Lab assay of single mutants.
Amino acid sequence: EVTIKANLIFANGSTQTAEFKGTFEKATSEAYAYADTLKKDNGEYTVDVADKGYTLNIKFAG
Protein backbone atom coordinates (compact mmCIF):
# COMPACT_ATOMS: atom_id res chain seq x y z
CA GLU A 1 0.00 0.00 0.00
CA VAL A 2 1.20 3.47 -0.90
CA THR A 3 -0.01 6.98 -0.12
CA ILE A 4 -0.45 9.54 -2.88
CA LYS A 5 -0.49 13.13 -1.60
CA ALA A 6 -2.50 15.65 -3.61
CA ASN A 7 -1.79 19.33 -3.03
CA LEU A 8 -4.85 21.18 -4.31
CA ILE A 9 -4.14 24.79 -5.27
CA PHE A 10 -7.18 26.91 -6.03
CA ALA A 11 -7.37 30.07 -8.15
CA ASN A 12 -8.14 32.23 -5.10
CA GLY A 13 -4.85 31.17 -3.51
CA SER A 14 -6.27 28.73 -0.97
CA THR A 15 -4.78 25.28 -0.67
CA GLN A 16 -5.90 21.90 0.56
CA THR A 17 -4.15 18.56 0.94
CA ALA A 18 -5.74 15.18 0.34
CA GLU A 19 -4.24 11.71 0.68
CA PHE A 20 -5.24 8.59 -1.21
CA LYS A 21 -4.14 5.11 -0.15
CA GLY A 22 -4.01 1.79 -1.97
CA THR A 23 -1.95 0.41 -4.79
CA PHE A 24 -0.07 3.09 -6.72
CA GLU A 25 -2.52 2.79 -9.63
CA LYS A 26 -5.65 2.86 -7.45
CA ALA A 27 -4.51 5.78 -5.30
CA THR A 28 -3.44 7.81 -8.34
CA SER A 29 -6.74 7.08 -10.07
CA GLU A 30 -8.68 8.20 -7.00
CA ALA A 31 -6.67 11.44 -6.80
CA TYR A 32 -7.50 12.30 -10.42
CA ALA A 33 -11.15 11.32 -9.90
CA TYR A 34 -11.29 13.67 -6.89
CA ALA A 35 -9.83 16.50 -8.97
CA ASP A 36 -12.45 15.80 -11.62
CA THR A 37 -15.23 16.23 -9.04
CA LEU A 38 -13.78 19.63 -8.06
CA LYS A 39 -13.44 20.77 -11.68
CA LYS A 40 -17.09 21.85 -11.98
CA ASP A 41 -16.74 24.51 -9.28
CA ASN A 42 -13.04 25.31 -9.65
CA GLY A 43 -12.31 25.17 -13.37
CA GLU A 44 -9.90 23.10 -15.40
CA TYR A 45 -6.76 21.88 -13.69
CA THR A 46 -3.16 21.08 -14.45
CA VAL A 47 -1.06 18.53 -12.59
CA ASP A 48 2.61 18.79 -11.71
CA VAL A 49 3.91 15.36 -10.75
CA ALA A 50 6.62 15.30 -8.07
CA ASP A 51 8.34 12.75 -5.84
CA LYS A 52 8.27 10.04 -8.54
CA GLY A 53 4.48 10.31 -8.74
CA TYR A 54 3.78 10.14 -5.01
CA THR A 55 2.95 13.85 -4.86
CA LEU A 56 0.53 15.54 -7.25
CA ASN A 57 0.34 19.34 -7.29
CA ILE A 58 -3.09 20.03 -8.78
CA LYS A 59 -3.68 23.67 -9.76
CA PHE A 60 -7.18 24.84 -10.66
CA ALA A 61 -7.69 27.67 -13.16
CA GLY A 62 -10.79 29.12 -11.49
Score class of each variant (00 low, 15 high):
I9V: 15
I9A: 10
A33H: 14
N7A: 06
S29G: 11
T17Y: 07
Y32R: 11
A31M: 08
E44P: 12
I4E: 00
K26A: 15
L38V: 13
Y54S: 07
S14V: 07
T17F: 07
K39D: 02
A27Y: 00
T3W: 08
K5T: 07
E25G: 10
L38W: 08
E30Q: 10
Y45H: 02
K21P: 05
F10G: 02
Y45V: 02
D51A: 07
A50C: 04
V2P: 07
V2S: 05
F60C: 00
T3M: 10
K5Y: 13
G13P: 01
V47C: 03
G53A: 04
A27L: 01
Y45M: 04
F24S: 06
E25A: 08
N12L: 05
T3D: 04
D51V: 02
E44G: 09
S29N: 09
A18W: 09
T23K: 15
N7H: 13
N12K: 08
V49T: 10
A11W: 05
F10H: 03
T15R: 08
Y34W: 15
V49H: 14
G22E: 04
T55Q: 05
E25R: 04
G53C: 03
E44W: 11
A33P: 00
T3H: 08
F60L: 01
F60T: 00
E44A: 06
K39M: 14
G53K: 04
I9H: 12
V49Q: 14
K40N: 10
A11F: 08
V2D: 13
D41G: 10
G13W: 06
D48Y: 11
V47W: 11
S29I: 15
D51W: 02
F60Q: 01
K39V: 08
I4K: 00
V2N: 11
G43V: 02
D36Y: 05
K59S: 08
A6R: 00
K59D: 05
G62Y: 08
I9Q: 11
T17I: 11
Q16S: 09
V49G: 06
K26W: 07
E25K: 10
I58W: 01
A35C: 04
N12R: 05
A18F: 14
E19P: 05
D36K: 07
T23Y: 14
A50S: 11
D36T: 10
N42Q: 15
N12V: 06
G53V: 02
A61Y: 07
I9F: 11
A6H: 00
D51E: 06
T15Q: 09
D36I: 04
S14I: 10
D48W: 08
T23Q: 13
N7Y: 10
K59H: 11
V2Q: 13
A11S: 10
T37L: 04
G43W: 06
V2Y: 09
Q16T: 13
E1N: 13
K5C: 03
D48P: 01
K39R: 13
T15E: 07
K40P: 07
A33M: 14
I58S: 00
L56W: 06
T28G: 02
I4T: 01
G13Q: 15
A27K: 01
Y32D: 01
Y45S: 01
A18E: 08
S29F: 10
K52F: 15
G62D: 13
G53E: 04
E1Q: 14
D36F: 05
Y32C: 03
D48R: 09
F10Y: 14
T55D: 03
K52M: 15
Y45C: 02
F10R: 03
Q16D: 06
T23F: 03
A18C: 03
A11R: 10
A18L: 15
K52R: 07
Y45W: 13
D51M: 09
L8P: 00
G43D: 03
T15C: 03
A27G: 05
S29A: 14
K40Y: 09
L56D: 00
D48N: 13
K5S: 15
I58T: 01
A61E: 15
T17N: 12
Q16M: 10
D51T: 03
F24C: 03
K5L: 05
A6I: 10
D51S: 07
D48G: 10
N57S: 13
K59C: 03
A33I: 14
Y32I: 11
K21H: 06
A6F: 03
D48A: 14
A27C: 03
Y45T: 02
L38P: 00
T23W: 06
V47P: 02
Y45K: 01
F24W: 14
D36E: 10
D51Y: 05
